[in-house]
């Protein structure tokens, strides 16, 4: 736990692993350089070629009006260079504005609803329980399913004549029947519920893991001093859980900004366009299937910049003090 509250730079390769070791011989130096080059080459080549380069290319493409059948010499065609037009067009298109709004709605709702719910459940369950292991496995099930497969399962359940409506009917709640994923007024909320179902188990497990790091002695001491269960949680356990909560929130934010699979497979394109479009679905729709790689790339860059700003701000404001300890703790 001491490591958790210690401070440090966000990214550090740590102290020199070999202080003042062996006397350098000529062949030794050459050999060492050769080893370094040989060992890092595969990772570097792959990383630069398939991670860095595409992101850079996205920035380049975003300034062009490119055809669906893209060829490299399109970039040399001055008529295709459109400057910031793609960005202007994206930011002034109601569809994309709605996509940004939807994405942020999912982000904020995840933080406000999934977070407290997961913390509450984890606090309740943080004790010796029979069948605790089984419980952990069960709540982990939604998380391990591919988002697409979970989405298809829910799509079947939420059909007008599907299991959920029938269940509501059977419980005398027939007035709650909806066409969950096809009604533009509620489709986004339905998506949010499915996403919560899928990811809250992971949040609970994360919080439970964080609670393991809170020493029992503190809570015991508080109880001896007459604190109630709630007071113990509020003033002892929750503050010590804060690093875990901050990390969960970071994860949740990054995930929410990129919601794609779930929306793509559960909602019909016509409904998606008017009510549940996210930044990622809009990007793929326009860039890949709409045959406008240049415009799609501009969307990708906007998504990237938004994610980067949020990540950097969040790291600076909230995550900074957790990081050093986190790296070492995470690998046990």
């Amino acid at each position: 736990m001491t490591a958790v509250v210690s401070s440090g730079p966000a990214v550090s390769a740590g102290p020199d692993p070999h202080p003042a070791s062996r006397p350098p011989s000529r062949t030794g130096v050459v050999r060492k350089r050769f080893e370094i080059a040989l060992f890092t080459a595969p990772a570097l080549v792959l990383f630069i070629g398939f991670v860095i380069l595409p992101v850079v290319l996205a920035a380049v493409y975003s300034f062009y009006n490119l055809p669906a059948g893209f060829r490299w010499d399109n970039l040399a065609d001055p008529d295709r260079f459109v400057g910031f037009d793609n960005y202007v067009r994206a930011l002034s298109t109601p569809e994309f504005q709605r996509a940004i709004g939807n994405t942020f709605l999912i982000l904020v709702m995840s933080l406000l609803i999934q977070g407290p719910l997961a913390i509450g459940i984890a606090l309740l369950l943080n004790r010796k329980l029979r069948g605790r292991g089984v419980f952990r496995l069960l709540i982990f099930v939604p998380y391990v399913l591919a988002e697409v497969i979970a989405g298809l399962a829910w799509k079947l359940l939420l059909q007008p004549g599907g299991g959920v409506n029938a269940m509501l009917e059977a419980c005398g709640l027939g007035f709650l029947r909806h066409n969950w994923l096809a009604d533009p007024d509620i489709a986004l909320w339905t998506i949010f519920l499915i996403l919560s179902w899928k990811y809250i188990g992971f949040a609970i497990l994360l919080m439970l893991a964080g609670l393991q790091g809170v020493p029992d002695e503190l809570a015991e001491a508080a109880q001896i001093d007459g604190a109630t269960w709630w007071q113990t949680q509020r003033y002892i356990t929750l503050p010590l859980l804060a690093p875990t909560v901050r990390i969960w929130a970071f994860l949740s934010i990054i995930g929410a900004l990129q919601v794609f699979d779930m929306v793509w497979v559960t909602v019909a394109p016509a409904v998606r366009r008017i009510s549940t479009e996210t930044m990622a679905t809009y990007m793929v729709q326009q860039g890949q299937f709409g045959g406008q790689p240049g415009y799609g790339s501009a969307i990708a860059v906007i998504l990237f910049v938004i994610s980067l700003i949020i990540a950097l701000v969040y790291q600076r404001l909230a995550l900074r003090r957790d990081l050093t300890g986190a790296i070492t703790r995470g690998v046990q």
Partner: peptide, 22 residues
């Protein structure tokens, strides 16, 4: 190390379209 760590900020979603063309 910093280069690889920064990779966490480069989600697949952002790179997907140019990657397909590449």
């Amino acid at each position: 190390y910093t280069l690889f760590a920064a990779g966490l900020m480069f989600p697949l979603t952002v790179a997907a379209l140019p990657l397909t063309l590449l």
